[in-house]
Simulated assay, not measured.
Amino acid sequence: MELSVSDLAVSLGTRRVLHGVDAMLRPGRVTAILGPNGSGKSTLVRTLAGLLDPDAGQVKLGGKLLARLQPRERARRIGYLPQEATVHWDLRVAELIALGRAPHRAPFAGLSGTDQAAIDAAIEATAVRPLVERRVTQLSGGERARVLLGRVLAGAPDWLLADEPLASLDPVHQLDLLDRLRTLAAGGMGVVIVLHDLLQAARAADDVLLLREGRVVAFGPAEAALAHQPLREAFGVEVMVIGDDQGRLLPVPIGRTKSV
């Protein structure tokens, strides 16, 4: 089911952050949201997750208004991973990941076989099996980020929305995570990630949405959205495009453009 926004406008306090955003995000694909600091990336993801109400425009999931879905149903459909790897309880890792099954369980019910299978799959997908008996407060920032992703994946959502999921990961785990996200998308999940790194976006994304000052500069296949002119307009940078050993075109920033 598609996740779409039409003529979306969102304010934070008295400041308008998003202006007339239109996009149709498709399942089975990785969509990267990029833009300079303050361009509205996190605001857009939070609105897609149903955590912010738009001033104007609509968010739809499978053709239905997101705002009309019951919170429990929305939580089953959309998994959201925020920037801040914050945990308010000192739980065991296994217990924290199990919380991802909450939208699927009756209050106070134990874990079913389906629940446990989903938890196990999330543990394997995020490579945190060696951590399951540790307390969350004993984890590094990168380990905690992987565990929190595991909690989201345990819910088996149709859509995964991740805001800066690479921020606290070392290069190896960044590559591993992007590969896992691509695997999830290949299995039919819709994946939306906020990124800053153009190379990682070119490597991982099927589609790219470029924002600048709350407006869409470009949206479409990664190769087109990460071309010279859209990146000049969005970031004010010149890029050199190189090819990798898999035939992908990778934009490498080489300097500021004088026209922006």
Results as ranks from 00 to 15, higher is better:
65 L>Y: 09
48 L>D: 01
85 A>E: 08
69 L>S: 07
111 L>N: 04
145 A>Q: 15
69 L>I: 08
65 L>K: 07
68 R>E: 10
80 Y>N: 00
70 Q>G: 02
50 G>N: 11
126 T>W: 04
88 H>W: 15
43 T>M: 04
70 Q>I: 12
117 A>E: 14
148 L>A: 01
58 Q>W: 01
59 V>N: 00
58 Q>M: 08
120 D>V: 04
47 T>I: 08
82 P>K: 12
116 Q>Y: 04
135 R>H: 08
124 E>K: 14
141 G>Y: 02
49 A>V: 00
144 R>P: 00
98 A>L: 09
49 A>H: 02
99 L>S: 06
84 E>R: 15
139 L>I: 11
82 P>E: 09
101 R>Q: 13
51 L>Q: 15
82 P>D: 09
72 R>D: 08
102 A>V: 13
79 G>S: 02
97 I>T: 06
106 A>R: 15
148 L>Y: 08
93 V>M: 03
50 G>Y: 09
54 P>Q: 08
52 L>P: 02
93 V>W: 03
74 R>V: 00
129 R>S: 14
104 H>V: 11
138 Q>H: 08
136 V>L: 07
138 Q>R: 07
44 L>F: 03
139 L>H: 03
84 E>P: 02
140 S>Q: 09
64 K>M: 12
67 A>F: 09
52 L>V: 11
103 P>W: 01
94 A>Y: 05
149 L>E: 05
72 R>E: 12
93 V>T: 06
75 A>Q: 12
59 V>T: 03
109 A>V: 10
46 R>D: 00
140 S>L: 05
63 G>M: 08
45 V>I: 14
71 P>T: 04
112 S>K: 13
146 R>V: 06
89 W>Q: 10
105 R>C: 07
109 A>L: 10
144 R>Y: 05
46 R>W: 03
87 V>Q: 02
111 L>H: 10
133 E>Q: 15
78 I>E: 00
95 E>M: 12
141 G>R: 07
138 Q>F: 00
72 R>L: 12
135 R>K: 09
147 V>G: 02
143 E>G: 00
115 D>A: 12
